[in-house]
Amino acid sequence: MEADFLATVLLSSLSSASILLIATIGLAVVFGLMGVINLAHGEFLMIGAYTALTATQAGVPYLLSIPIAVAVTMAIGALVEVLIISRLYGRIFDTMLATWGISIAFYQLAVLTFGTVSPGIGMPQISVQIGDYSLALYPLLMNVVALLMLGFVYLLMTRSVYGMKARASIQVPEMARAIGISSSRVNTLTFALGCGLAGFAGAVLLPIVPATPSMGFAFVIKAFLTVVVAGPVTLTGSALAAIGLGGGASVTASFLTSVAGDAFFFIVTALLLWRFPLGISARWRRKL
């Protein structure tokens, strides 16, 4: 096997893992901090993508359209939390059912609003040459984006007042309320943050995955499995699971077939959940 082929496989597998991590992190935050599995996560990603697309069509530069997408998805996320999720805490299956219903509604709303096809914005036509192989630059940039996202969430959780309140509310809710933390407001903010991260993912992945009403479906299954495999340690667990599952699947697909890559993802997920029913991070001492 030539060295240049190995190098491109390694690099692009790393970006595959990063893309998976970018799409997963919002889901992981909401699950890790609130115990809520948001099955509408993929639709928030879709809303982020459409917001960024609409903004760029209105003449906003692409980079500026990303924060707009985050703001819009956070607002919708907060609304959903207040109206629906807040009534279902502690009922994990009910929240899954409710968020699944929300996903169907959002999907159809997107079809009615945007139609079934919208023009994409395309990827920057810049590629990197490695030996005989060339790689698109934009997916490689996703490695940097994924690292920045991890760093942002880590700092937010450890260094900000909100982060401390959020962790307190989830670890000892009664005590948190006793010392004056309004846990319902913290929860609204956490859910909105998770949705905002999904919106960010949708916007930043827009050049790679064109905005379509059904784009959420493609992400939500793998993102969901990654979160479940990761277990309770939100950040480190998700990063490791994304690299192992997403990167491993990509390497397998490069050497064998894409079907083998998918098979790798699902078989390894099943094996890990068999050995670690609560996720790979269930017995770790770290918290994030």
């Binding site: 082929f5 970006s15 479906f217 894409s258 998918d262």
Partner: peptide
């Protein structure tokens, strides 16, 4: 040749095999 599931969003492996 490469056959792909409908949920695949990342085509880097296929694109490498095409170049190969």
């Amino acid at each position: 040749e490469d056959f792909l599931a409908l949920t695949v969003t990342d085509y880097a492996p296929t694109i490498q095999k095409i170049q190969q």
